[in-house]
Simulated scan of single mutants.
Amino acid sequence: MALPFRPESEETDRLITLSDGVIAIAITLLVLEISVPTVPDGTTAAVVPDLVAEQWPEFVGYALSFLVIGLYWTLHRRVFAHVERHDRGVLWLNLLFLLLVAFVPYATSVFVAYPNGFGIAFYAGVLALTGFSLALLWGHVSRKRLLEAGLTSRTVEIQAARFLISPIVLVGSAALAQFDPTLAVLSWASLIPINAVFESRLVASIEESLTESENQPH
């Protein structure tokens, strides 16, 4: 007689729901950190456009953090698209990832308030740690064989490289910020083409794995 409940290791839906909720709250907090400018006494509302324009660092910080959290959500989704079951290690590593994601709004505020060497390095460091936590999660599920059957070792390796490349670039920018803060911020733009290249390679590898699986005799 089958047990009337699923094994705990297969109950990943609650874990994913918690993760999506924390990420959604973190993204929402980003925009809540942007304050509405106050018109100084003795002036008219005509100065509001200028006051809003002066907030451009806050808008840049919001957009950057939104995109990075969105990227990490995409990668997190990719992890659990291939995970068939989990263990205690997955639970704790996922909580570590959520801990760091929830800290991103504060790091964004520091970056906006102090866009110098320290502020940039602090911001990039938090984002890098968040990315490394995802890489640890992927490494754990692949090492413990918690992934779905059919994924080739090449696919797993490409995914691992993709998890690592963004935090590595961010760590490099944190070091660069001590010498040239502007160049450090501009280096973040390299994440777009780099991730695009890894995504195309990953998709090609997954399609190749599916083709090989379909061609195998049953």
Rank of each mutant, 00 (worst) to 15 (best):
A2V: 03
R6T: 03
E8R: 13
E11W: 03
T12D: 13
R14C: 02
R14A: 05
L18E: 09
S19N: 14
D20T: 08
I23H: 00
I25D: 03
L29C: 04
S35L: 02
V36S: 03
P37H: 08
P37I: 09
P40S: 10
T43G: 15
T44C: 04
V48Y: 05
F59E: 04
V60N: 04
F66V: 01
I69N: 01
W73M: 01
H76I: 07
H76M: 02
R77D: 07
R78D: 12
R78K: 08
A81D: 14
R85H: 12
H86W: 15
G89R: 04
V90A: 05
L91M: 10
W92Y: 07
L100N: 01
P105C: 09
A107F: 09
V110S: 02
F118E: 09
F118A: 12
G119I: 13
G125N: 00
V126L: 00
G139K: 06
H140N: 13
V141E: 04
L146E: 03
E148W: 04
S153M: 14
S153N: 11
T155L: 15
V156C: 10
Q159H: 14
Q159S: 15
L164F: 07
S166I: 12
S173R: 12
D180M: 09
L183K: 08
V185K: 05
S187Q: 05
W188G: 05
I192F: 15
V203N: 10
S205D: 14
S205T: 06
S205M: 11
E212M: 13
E212P: 05
E214N: 08
